[in-house]
């Protein structure tokens, strides 16, 4: 099996690569590339993302044919895709970081700044927070409710259809921290930095 981590200059993806390689060992081939032919032929795709919504969307667009390839992979062919952090946020129709930017539109909704209640909550939301699993998700198999995951973000994804939400976390309000819509998975937290429990989520995705 081939799992491809999309390398589209979206910032630091070393930790994502390291964690997937750790979980995959020799069983699964982990490819790190922006080559659209390799993405097309892979079984699963991981879409990481760091920095701003705008910079990530622009970085995706800068690679010719990449957005179309991802659309074909996730929407037409319905193959498993995992978005992490801004990778998840880009599923939305629109994001409001820096300026209004169109997202991939895979899961209807918007990405806006976390309401920090006039400074009561510090931003970015950095550190370990518990996830409240609200629906069964394939990537949460053998993950206990209220497990701690590592977060670092200032913006949150607000999907229109709440049935896609698989987990939330409590920081000033209930923030969507995981979604599942058919073959599309996303986590706002960083499984690659969430210790053994995070590696388990990665393993669940690889084993889908």
């Amino acid at each position: 099996m081939n799992v491809t981590i999309v390398d589209y200059n979206s910032g630091n993806i070393s930790s994502v690569i390291n964690s997937f390689k750790e979980v995959a060992k020799d069983k699964v081939n982990i490819e790190v590339t922006s080559d659209i032919n390799k993405i097309k032929s892979s079984d699963k795709v991981v879409l990481p993302g760091q920095g701003s919504f705008k910079s990530c969307v622009e970085a995706l667009k800068n690679i010719y044919g990449l957005t179309d390839t991802l659309n074909e992979f996730a929407i037409t062919n319905k193959k498993p895709l995992l978005g992490i952090c801004v990778g998840l946020q880009m599923f939305a129709d629109v994001g409001y970081e820096e300026t209004e930017t169109k997202g991939l539109g895979w899961i209807s909704g918007k990405v806006s700044k976390i309401d920090n209640q006039n400074g009561k909550f510090k931003l970015p939301h950095i550190g370990w927070n518990q996830i409240n699993i609200v629906k069964e998700s394939k990537i949460f198999q053998n993950i206990e409710n209220n497990s701690h995951m590592y977060f670092v973000h200032s913006y949150e994804f607000i999907p229109k259809d709440t049935s896609v939400i698989s987990a939330t976390t409590d920081y000033s309000s209930n923030i969507v921290c995981s979604v599942e819509k058919q073959n599309i998975f996303g986590t706002q937290f960083h499984p690659e930095k969430s210790d053994k429990i995070g590696l388990k989520i990665i393993s669940n995705f690889i084993d889908l």
Binding site: Q50, G51, P124, I126
Partner: peptide, 8 residues
């Protein structure tokens, strides 16, 4: 922070 994101 613009290039790599404030988070890092």
């Amino acid at each position: 922070s613009k290039k790599f994101g404030s988070q890092c």
